[in-house]
């Protein structure tokens, strides 16, 4: 185990869409709590409707938590990898610049630090991290 002094490397799997389900709120709060206790949140994998978390176009009302910005802050502050399942994303209209070009779309909806990834990286996260915690609707 790579952990030092009981500190663990975490991966989260988010399967619920932002705002329509509690999964995202719960995942973010769990992530903040584990960091506060000195653990590392190394990877978040967005799958199923969780891929909507990666939309750069999300514009929630100003008096609500901005979930997309919260993920971006995690990536910037903690170096957390934000992986978005490419198969789940494409069929839901979430494309980065390269995929948008490849499919002849007029705009793109995913940008770094969110990165389109294969399911293989989800399987790998389950093996390489100390803990894998799923947040489903």
């Amino acid at each position: 185990m790579a952990s030092e002094q009981g500190k663990l490397r975490y991966a989260l799997v988010v399967l619920g869409g932002p705002y329509s389900q509690a999964a995202t709120h719960s995942a973010l709060r769990f992530g903040e709590a584990l960091i506060a206790q000195g653990h590392r949140l190394e990877t978040v994998f967005f799958y199923h409707d969780g891929v909507y978390n990666a939309s750069r176009l999300a514009a929630p009302p100003q008096d609500e938590p901005h979930l997309v910005d919260a993920w971006v802050r995690l990536a910037n502050d903690q170096g957390t990898e934000l992986l978005v399942c490419v198969a789940a994303a494409l069929r839901r209209g979430l494309l980065d610049e390269r995929e948008a070009q490849r499919h002849g779309k007029p705009a793109f909806s995913v940008e770094p630090p969110f990165v389109l990834a294969g399911i293989g990286q989800l399987v790998e996260a389950g093996i390489t991290h100390d803990r894998l915690v799923t947040f489903a609707p």
Binding site: Y47, H48, A87, A88, G118, I119, G120, L122, V123, E124
Partner: peptide
Amino acid sequence: DGSWLREGLDVALVAAAFGR
């Protein structure tokens, strides 16, 4: 019932393809 079954099976297939 949504895409749960299909997306769950996809994880199984990919994991198996990775030799798990």
